[in-house]
Amino acid sequence: MVTVRQVLGAFGEARVVQDCACPKCKRSKSLIRLPLSFKCADVVCDFCGYLAQVKSASSKRLDRIPKSVLGAARGPQRERMEAAIYFPLFLVLVNAAREYSIFYLAADLQEPSMFKPRKPLLETARRAGWQGFIYDMTVVENRVIRLR
């Protein structure tokens, strides 16, 4: 069964694929969605291989980014950070009327301090011990650009 968050995430990925050109090669309609199991990236350019992460969030205001956004698994993200690998971030904000805006943060404008660990899941949870992270967008709020 698909959750509300999964529906929101799929909507955001679809909007990026439909509305955004590849930031690297500038081709329109070349971004495609990756399989759900792909770690730390959601879209790839089928021309130049550019990878990017897409995060979607519900928001009443579409004109400014939230202070924080839920990330995914902390382990794979931490390993990539230790190797100095960062994926660009598309942030899709969606309001109750399904209107949306898209923001973009380049990989070279990210820094380790924006990735805040969440508490691990309790032992009673289905995925006990799993730990996620939160994007602290206050660290990079002046580096994010609005695309739509």
Score class of each variant (00 low, 15 high):
G12N: 09
G12E: 11
A14K: 06
A14Q: 12
A14G: 10
A14F: 06
V16W: 01
V16G: 01
D19C: 14
C20T: 08
C20I: 09
C22S: 05
C22W: 08
P23G: 05
K24A: 14
C25E: 06
C25I: 03
K26P: 03
K29L: 14
K29Q: 14
S30I: 08
S30A: 15
L31Q: 06
L31K: 02
R33D: 07
L34I: 01
P35E: 01
S37P: 04
K39R: 15
K39A: 15
C40F: 05
C40G: 06
D42N: 09
D42Y: 02
V43K: 00
C45Q: 02
C45F: 00
C45T: 00
D46T: 12
F47R: 10
C48P: 00
C48D: 06
G49S: 02
G49H: 04
Y50A: 10
Y50P: 07
Y50N: 08
L51W: 02
L51C: 03
A52Q: 11
A52L: 12
Q53I: 00
V54C: 08
S56K: 03
A57D: 04
A57Q: 07
A57K: 04
S58P: 05
S58M: 10
S58C: 09
S59R: 08
S59C: 10
R61H: 11
R61K: 12
L62V: 03
L62N: 01
L62D: 00
R64N: 12
P66E: 11
P66N: 08
P66C: 08
K67C: 09
K67R: 12
S68A: 13
V69M: 07
V69R: 02
L70P: 09
L70D: 13
G71F: 00
A72N: 14
A72P: 00
A73P: 00
A73I: 05
G75K: 15
P76E: 10
R78D: 12
R78M: 12
E79M: 12
E79N: 13
R80S: 08
M81E: 14
A83D: 09
A83N: 11
A83K: 15
I85Q: 05
I85H: 08
Y86D: 02
Y86F: 15
Y86P: 06
Y86S: 06
F87R: 10
P88Y: 01
L89Q: 08
L89P: 04
L91H: 03
L91R: 02
L91A: 05
V92H: 02
V94Y: 01
N95S: 03
A96M: 13
A96N: 14
R98F: 11
Y100N: 04
S101N: 03
I102D: 01
Y104R: 00
Y104H: 04
Y104G: 00
Y104W: 06
L105C: 00
D108S: 09
D108E: 14
L109W: 07
E111N: 12
P112F: 09
P112K: 14
F115I: 14
K116C: 11
P117E: 05
R118M: 14
R118H: 09
K119Q: 13
E123H: 04
E123I: 05
T124L: 06
T124E: 10
T124H: 06
R126P: 07
R127I: 08
R127E: 14
